[in-house]
Design a protein around this nucleic acid. Structure first.
Lengths: 341, 341
DNA sequence: CTCGAAAATGTTACCGGTAACATTTGGCAA
DNA sequence: TTGCCAAATGTTACCGGTAACATTTTCGAG
């Protein structure tokens, strides 16, 4: 009847303006910079907004003003114990300033990541957040061409151009070796991640290898073939401990593997750390509840989200840029010593 | 210099159209319904898109066509073991059809939920997903007025109007009692969630109470004052077991509480389930790794995400509506019997 | 009381697409 | 060859805001 194509029950700035007896732009200003609208009109507009139940249309606003209030993030996965905290803190920080989070997961696939980035750029987000420094060439190209702030998280390689907020995975590998070597262990093995595509995990392995070499020890990397982390951990324990010269300590690429390995060993009658020291990565929720509780390294997941959000808000001019604090983007992992090593 | 306000390096349909020697709408059609564009033009447009590195602007498209490809979801939290799987499967399912996920968390606060809903509606999402059936009045009003499909997840109360995909929390409480009663336990206590605002958890408690009554047993609800679930669990165990007539079995509102309680009891020299049966909810990742492993109920987190996505895609006409399958939206929880009860 | 600058408000055009309707082209029966 | 309908393509206007510039109002100094 009405002839309007859409807007069934949805008021626009124009409707509000008409009812308040002002021009549309004044209504727009009422929302963006209330202080430059006179109190009288503010009151009239406020009333009209209430009466019409007006909700601003962000898509239209973003289109007209070059600055949407969406921030897009591509993360390997949402479930799983690793990234959830980063997403959470990132989203919370942003929402405080009225930005909304557009999210997609890549499952460590650079192709899926590329697809997500492509789709996201179509929303001209205010900023784009990626995970890790490893992307497809096409992603690199798209990102290089984009004009909004880009942040890479969970890695820190200052040689690269995009802003990075994370930590050095190589350093994590080194830290684990240092700790175990300090406790007198010599035959220290490393169990790699069964998750293909997690390139940063390989950096941790490389850090391990380098550190071992620096101590004059032989690196000993086990690559599980099982996909399931529990099974993979079991496989590793069987291979590394049931032999003439068993490993004295095992660094697992993550806590899941470590837990799987430890349980398998216990079922086979071993005791930890008596028979072998167990070292994880990630500090998953269950790690402190295992028996023995798991010695591990806590990545600064939550902090990454917070700092990334902060950097973005600064780049967008929402919060003042600090005095030139350098390298605050390089975050620290925390060594958590428990019973297993 | 150029005079263009934005579009620095970003091509539009119009640019593509000019280069391909067609009109803009033809380019638009090339993306939406390629089959109605002749092969010759398709080829020319495709080439122009490649040359200009054109990316469609979804905000503009959505504005013009009433149908954005964003789906908004408000969830209590992203981290935490509960909802991550729902988000993950939901997002995955949607992205398969080119929809993107806009996400916000409410932390079980209906005020925060309302704020998120308000912001989301401004993006005119293709659909809106909420968690639980409990919202503020204003949220109810906004939702009732909205025209896009709305889905409530993690609850199932068919009396309400919005489409619901979830399970009956009351039934979960009942199921736990049934199981424990079947094993001969009489003094069965229930430890409530310390997370205020999680109203669905109270439904589980009510289900417990009703079931106890139906068996002629006295309900026995403990309300922890500690916020930290581990501490709360500890508190509960102390209160329920260190007394003349201790509980024979304890149903905890979630696995975190159960784990905390069990560890505290073990530290105090108790053995489970010998001294008391322990029953959880959630089937968190660590539950099978506890000693004894935790008997619990697995909520259909992943399934909720999948089914919710499916219903939305059906409502949007992306996938065919099945033959009238009734009640597929009521999902089943799975009783997972392990060692602790 | 007049004038001028600052503050408040309005006008116009346009952001980048697409719906609705208009027009042209193509293919085939008569 | 003509005529007619369907397929292919184009024209125009508009989605709901806001930038840029234009105009009016306010108000204190002179």
């Amino acid at each position: 009847m009405s002839g309007k194509r859409k807007g069934l029950g949805r008021a626009t700035v124009h409707d509000v303006a008409k009812l308040a007896g002002v021009s549309s732009i004044t209504v727009s200003r009422y929302f963006k910079q209330p202080d430059i609208v006179s109190p009288v009109l503010r009151e009239r507009i406020s009333e009209a907004v209430r009466v019409l139940d007006y909700l601003p249309n962000h898509a239209a606003g973003g289109l007209a003003s070059t600055r949407g209030r969406i921030v897009a993030m591509v993360i390997p996965n949402i479930s799983g114990p690793i990234f959830a905290n980063t997403i959470q803190s990132f989203s919370d920080e942003l929402s405080r300033y009225g930005y909304q989070l557009l999210l997609a997961s890549s499952y460590f696939s650079i192709e899926q990541e590329e697809r997500a980035v492509r789709a996201f750029l179509g929303w001209s987000p205010a900023a784009l957040v990626l995970t890790s420094q490893y992307h497809s060439e096409e992603t690199e190209r798209l990102v290089a061409k984009a004009t909004m702030p880009i942040v890479e998280t969970w890695d820190y390689e200052p040689a690269r151009k995009p802003l990075q907020v994370g930590f050095s995975h190589g350093e994590v590998g080194r830290q684990a070796v240092e700790y175990l070597h300090g406790k007198g262990y010599q035959r220290i093995a490393f169990v790699q991640n069964s998750m293909v595509g997690d390139l940063s995990a390989l950096d941790r392995r490389d850090g391990y290898i380098a550190a071992m070499a620096s101590y004059g020890l032989n690196p000993w990397v086990f690559v599980p073939t099982q996909a399931d982390p529990f099974e993979a951990g079991k496989q590793a324990v069987n291979s590394l401990l049931l032999r003439k010269e068993p490993a004295e300590a095992i660094i697992f690429a993550n806590d899941n593997l470590a837990a799987g390995g430890m349980l398998a060993g216990q079922r086979a009658g071993m005791q930890f750390p008596r028979d072998c020291a167990i070292f994880g990565f990630g500090n998953y929720a269950f790690s402190e509840m295992l028996l023995p509780s798991l010695t591990t390294i806590r990545p600064p997941a939550k902090e990454i989200g917070e700092v990334a959000a902060m950097r973005i808000l600064q780049a967008l001019g929402e919060i003042p840029t600090d005095e030139p604090v350098q390298h605050l983007n390089l975050l620290e992992c925390e060594l958590i010593v428990r019973e297993s090593a």
